[in-house]
């Protein structure tokens, strides 16, 4: 187990290097710092000095890979690649184009993101599995067929509509909840309920349908028949045999996402003005702040890889057949 985790971590390094190289190519080679300066400062009316000044200010005035002017180790360290890409490995995100420290921004905004994402995620899983199990009880009946149609209909509605209509009817028309905003601490719950409810509902269609088909697949397997032949009741078969055996595919889909929850939800946070990482990123995208985007790409992939490792570890817990080696 331990050696497995070590090996997975070692395997993660080339992947992170790959992510890093890819972002580096995207951000510095496809478009040179000059291009970005021009784009930032406004298209045609920009002078060469202004461009150079912007570049120097952001620290993009070094060579890409090798600095011939510097001495010793400096040939490699005084470069854009080292300062802007490799330093990410040490979680040194540097400053945003607006001059703030990305690291402290990220830490500060993680809280609100989690306050929204965690409840949405776990309530969502609970609701979806319950709905799917309920539907499975009526398998083959008209209720089952009707439920499937409802699931497909729900998943055919754009995520944005859930938010727009939810905000419109729940907050604006019936004034049950505040339209948007955020508050630290306990009082914050009033602001969170609506986005959580919308987040959960918008996911039901696709997820419950997926769980249902998983359950049906497992319930057709031989051991479910054995259990029935032993005299186990239908509910017993469902909870003691089918559910534990669907854990593996469920975990594959679910555990991977947990670390990425830190990143928050771009759309939801910005609609409800929640000052989390999602809205941070969205603002950065809209302001074309590439330093933040780059840092977040890296952070996202680190979290994803952690998720992968957690998934593997959770397998051993869910299925005795899986041995990590």
């Amino acid at each position: 187990m331990f050696s497995y985790i070590i090996r997975r971590l070692c395997y993660a390094i080339p992947i992170l290097i790959g992510v890093n190289l890819l972002t580096f190519i995207l951000f510095f080679i496809v478009n040179t710092p000059e291009d970005m300066a021009t784009a930032h400062l406004g298209d045609k009316y920009v002078t060469e000095e202004a461009v150079q000044e912007w570049i120097a200010e952001k620290g993009y005035d070094q060579p890409l890979f090798v600095n011939g002017d510097a001495d010793g180790l400096g040939t490699l360290t005084d470069t854009i690649f080292f300062n802007k890409s490799l330093k990410l490995f040490a979680f040194d995100f540097g400053t945003s184009d607006a001059g703030r420290s990305i690291q402290s921004d990220v830490l500060e905004r993680m809280g609100p993101s989690l306050a929204l994402a965690l409840p949405t995620f776990f309530i969502g899983i609970f609701v979806n599995i319950s709905v799917a199990l309920m539907v499975l009880m009526f398998r083959g009946s008209n209720l089952d067929r009707f439920a499937v149609v409802v699931f497909v209909t729900l998943m055919s509605i754009s995520y944005l509509f859930y938010i727009i209509f939810g905000q419109y009817y729940m907050a604006k028309m019936s004034r049950l909840f505040p339209v948007s905003g955020f508050n630290d601490g306990i009082d914050g719950w009033r602001f969170l309920i609506l986005p959580i409810v919308i987040g959960v509902i918008s996911g039901i269609g696709a997820s419950a349908r997926w769980y249902r088909s998983l359950f049906i697949e497992v319930s057709g397997q031989d051991f479910a028949r054995t259990a029935r032949a032993k005299g186990v009741s239908e509910a017993g078969v469902l909870f003691r045999h089918i559910l534990p055996n669907t854990m593996l595919p469920i975990l594959t889909g679910v555990v991977v996402v947990i670390p990425v929850l830190f990143m928050g939800s771009l759309v939801m946070e910005s609609f409800f003005s929640i000052p989390g990482l999602g809205s941070y990123l969205l603002d950065a995208i809209r302001a074309q702040d590439f330093a933040i985007v780059r840092a977040m790409v890296f952070l996202g992939s680190v979290l994803y890889i952690i998720g992968l490792i957690l998934t593997d570890i959770s397998y051993t817990w869910a299925d005795p057949r899986v041995r990590l080696s």
Partner: peptide, 8 residues
Amino acid sequence: LTALNPVQ
């Protein structure tokens, strides 16, 4: 093998 529950 398939008739027995693999996770119990």
